[in-house]
Nucleic acid binder design. Sequence first.
DNA 1: TATAGGAGTGAGTAATCACTCATTATGAAA
DNA 2: TTTCATAATGAGTGATTACTCACTCCTATA
Lengths: 208, 208
Amino acid sequence: MNSNRATKRIENGRRKTAEERRQDILEAALNIFTQKGYNGSTTAEIARAASVAEGTIFRHFATKKELLIAVLEPKILVGLINLDKEHREYTPTEFFRCFLKNRLELIKENNGLFRFMFAEAQYHSEVREALFKAILEQGIGIIKPWYEKGVEQGEFRPLPFIPTMRSFMGMALFYGIFNGAFPGLPQEETLEEAADQMLELFLNGLLV
Amino acid sequence: MNSNRATKRIENGRRKTAEERRQDILEAALNIFTQKGYNGSTTAEIARAASVAEGTIFRHFATKKELLIAVLEPKILVGLINLDKEHREYTPTEFFRCFLKNRLELIKENNGLFRFMFAEAQYHSEVREALFKAILEQGIGIIKPWYEKGVEQGEFRPLPFIPTMRSFMGMALFYGIFNGAFPGLPQEETLEEAADQMLELFLNGLLV
DNA sequence: TATAGGAGTGAGTAATCACTCATTATGAAA
DNA sequence: TTTCATAATGAGTGATTACTCACTCCTATA
């Protein structure tokens, strides 16, 4: 056999570490998965996108499904970070405004990922359970305390929490996810405007 | 070859018509597709579920994808029927109440189908476009006239229509679709109660 | 410099896929 | 009964799949 196998090096001539290769594969897999779905993607395709031999994938991940889990695991909790710690001086209403904008940005930046997760959650119980857990943690763990504070302070009406939270999340997710999926939908507003309009409705309702 | 091929007859001894077989296949395909997704389903599996030879599927549908389209086509417009024609004496608010309950029932009855459609819409442009069209027709064609009537009569505030409709649909779809997908979600309410709570929020908002 | 072993490779494999087609079954018409 | 057209069948086909493994390459250490 001849020896013209591709030898990959990065700019300084150093060979990539195993961990860097693993990240390359994860990144490529995320791309391909979100474009074509789990069953619509092939390991050969992912290997090509990661500039790696197909066998290398299976050195890092025992099965394709394990690769799927590894791709989603660090992403699924991204919903929980970078909020809530710092700004304790919010009023409950201000918190909802800030939280909503934050979530809409997050969804917009990870649009393909969100759609992919919700789609695959139907067919892979591991994904479904992780997603379910993340949603509950956001809803119960983050929103609920502010919601209750708002009710105590007489700022919010004492509506039942779960249905209210579900509606709130439904608004945000439907906007974020499906506006990306249906690019033809009339969508003049910036994300900022969209969030304001959503909040206006959520806070004050449709009736005069 | 021996001649013990299965010969299927229904109760009165009559052989099924071609159209009946076609319907069997469509029904089986819908079941399998919604359980496993399009790429996760095999034509062999669908044939088995329809009690039909695999070749028979391809006598009725040229390709697997054509079968997918044929499965969804009659379902995708189901969202548009059985409403709106009769009760012209509604107030705009009453219309929203009636419309929402109607949609929630529809989603509940066709839960797997809805989730499947939204999932596959990402990967099949035909499905995406049909779904997009159905959503627009519901939103623009059905809701908008009532919305405008409500504004004219001074019953509704003049919020921008598209964002408001999107929020409304997001609430309904998220409730209907994901409550089915996450059976662990706290969900005490009946569908009737859920609709009332959703409307209460949609109409009057969270603020006191 | 020699060498051990971890990382990467890609041709190979068995399984599975969507789809074909020669054959058979069927019911109606003659 | 015989004939004929249509429908159904399922073994077969080539393409594709996830995954394997014998081998090569590379680097760290002695």
